[in-house]
Amino acid sequence: MTEEGPGPAEAVDSVLTALADPTRRRLLHLLAARGEVTATVLAEGLPVSRQAVVKHLAVLDAAGLVTARRAGREVRYSVQPAALDATARWMSSLAADWDRRLARIKRLAEAAEQDPPPQP
């Protein structure tokens, strides 16, 4: 029996939930800047404990934003951009839908200005 991953909506929800926390956004930024590093190194630049960093990294990992790789006794984390890319595409699609709706409303309003209803 194979286990399927989350669907597109659940994946976006997971990414947005993970990114809602400022500490997790900072961790993602640090990982993007530094490459593959340990939780200990990441904790050095944050006002939280190493244990808190590990918990935040677990949330980012569950959302598909980071990956963990064991290197001897260390666990090294790195950014996985695919989930963030998919979320950005979803947001772009949502924005495009709203742009189309607003353009239609604008066209209707402009048409109503040019052709006012008859007066009784």
Rank of each mutant, 00 (worst) to 15 (best):
G72R: 13
S92T: 15
A96H: 09
V54G: 06
V41M: 03
A43E: 02
D13I: 03
R73A: 13
V41H: 04
D97Y: 10
L42Q: 05
A11N: 01
L28I: 05
L57E: 00
L19E: 04
P117M: 14
P8C: 10
R34T: 09
K106C: 08
V54I: 13
R76T: 03
P8G: 12
A18L: 02
R34I: 00
S14K: 06
A63C: 08
D115A: 15
Q114A: 15
A103D: 10
R100K: 11
D21M: 05
L94Q: 12
Q80V: 11
L102T: 13
G5H: 12
L60E: 09
A103G: 08
G64M: 07
K106E: 15
E3W: 10
G72D: 11
V15Y: 02
P120W: 07
E44M: 09
A9M: 11
L46W: 04
L28G: 05
T87A: 14
V37M: 04
P47N: 08
A20N: 15
R104P: 00
V66K: 01
R24I: 02
A109P: 00
R24H: 01
A109D: 10
A68S: 14
A11P: 00
Q80M: 06
L57T: 03
P8F: 07
P8W: 09
T40A: 15
H29V: 10
V54H: 09
D85H: 13
G64N: 01
M91I: 11
A33W: 05
A11K: 08
V37Q: 15
L31V: 05
V41S: 03
R50P: 03
D99M: 11
D115F: 15
Q80P: 00
T40C: 00
D13N: 14
L108M: 12
G35P: 03
A33F: 05
L28W: 01
L65R: 03
A32F: 11
W90M: 11
T87R: 02
Q119M: 08
L94A: 14
A71I: 04
L46S: 05
A11H: 09
A83H: 01
A18M: 03
G35E: 06
A83D: 04
P8N: 08
D21Y: 10
A71Y: 03
V66Q: 02
P120C: 03
A32W: 13
A63T: 08
W90R: 15
P22I: 03
E36G: 12
P120Q: 02
E113W: 09
A111P: 00
S93V: 07
L19D: 01
V59F: 00
T17V: 11
A109N: 10
L84M: 12
L65V: 03
